[in-house]
Design a protein around this nucleic acid. Structure first.
Lengths: 186, 186
DNA sequence: TGCCGCATGTAATTAGTTACATGATTTC
DNA sequence: GAAATCATGTAACTAATTACATGCGGCA
């Protein structure tokens, strides 16, 4: 499961389940998400398999924290995953499925509206990614060229987000243009 | 569940579970996939909810076929889905997670290799999509302009595939270029 | 004889979501 | 006093994958 490897990757630094959830929210959200209700059991599974350990520490501002660390075996497992083939799953693009059947509405206006909505959603994503980029600008030494590896590779994933979302926006615009053209020529 | 709506959409024409599986393989694979072991129970569920019906017909070249049809209620349900907001799920991009942690390998060559592999995989996808495009060229009246709606909207989803995969290839090339540049400047 | 395509499924498991449950401290 | 943040989970459910199970007809 990729989530297991992602947690192993994030546990380069010791962290609690709660901390890890924040990493998803602030640093990985453009390509992955995970809920606490999935993170906690996964950490237990990793510990059972000897890939992480934890110690319980008291906190001044809340309940006790279970701070997890990656073991040598955990690091090995991570490196194996990184040495293997790129993992590509079948995609499931819900809105594309909607578009596929839009002819059943027999109404180009519905379709145009659909694409305009979609475009707005993608623009919101671009905005969220720009926030993440701002974090890089503020905290990555020698941004954007000559960043240290620990910033550079995560930054590449952000670049992916921009490329792909921009392509989606282009597709929306192209589709709207085609739909408008079809309205005239019938 | 989107799969339920997709089956309702495909059942514009009567079909068996087996037929529907072939639709995924030949027409929808660029944005969705479903296995027979998921299609059969989903058809049963749809029938239980009155959205499809079936009749059993004998076949000259194999076992009896359960031919499913969409009911009026099924069509209504589909139209509801198409009238709603575009459905956007959180993405889970496995290979991006791998890239995010590539710094742990401490080896730019591994990273370059990774991106070259990835690029090849995307190019294979482009090739599969071109096969689908060929089907449009052969069977869609007045391709590519003035296609009837039943061809036009599915064709838009194929256009999405091209836009997004091309963006991914661009990202791979940009990343390889950056990695090569970093190799020189240290 | 053995493999491919047609055609049906069920069972077991994995991955992820949503809902439920608890309780401390800090900020407005 | 209420809401937000910190911090832990479990239970029930949904969605999807993988493995298992059966059997006909045609072709090489």
């Amino acid at each position: 499961m990729s989530l297991e490897y992602i947690l192993l990757g994030l546990l380069d630094e010791p962290a609690t389940g709660y901390d890890l959830k924040k990493s998803f929210k602030f640093h990985l959200s453009h390509f992955w998400n995970a809920n606490l209700s999935q993170i906690y059991p996964t950490l237990k599974k990793l510990e059972k398999n000897g890939l992480v350990t934890h110690e319980e520490l008291s906190s001044p501002i809340g309940p006790d924290r279970k701070v997890y660390k990656r073991t040598a075996e955990g690091k090995e497992k991570l490196l194996e995953w990184l040495s293997g083939e790129p993992v590509m799953a079948d995609s499931r693009v819900h809105f594309a499925a909607q578009v596929f059947f839009l002819s059943e509405k027999h109404d180009p206006e519905t379709a145009i509206k659909f694409f305009k909505n979609l475009k707005i959603m993608f623009e919101e994503r671009i905005a969220r990614m720009s926030e993440i980029e701002k974090l890089f600008e503020e905290s990555a030494p020698e941004f954007p060229d000559n960043m240290p590896d620990e910033y550079f590779y995560p930054y590449l994933t952000l670049r992916m987000g921009f490329h792909r979302i921009q392509a989606s926006i282009d597709w929306c615009e192209e589709s709207i243009k085609n739909l408008e053209k079809r309205k005239l020529s019938d």
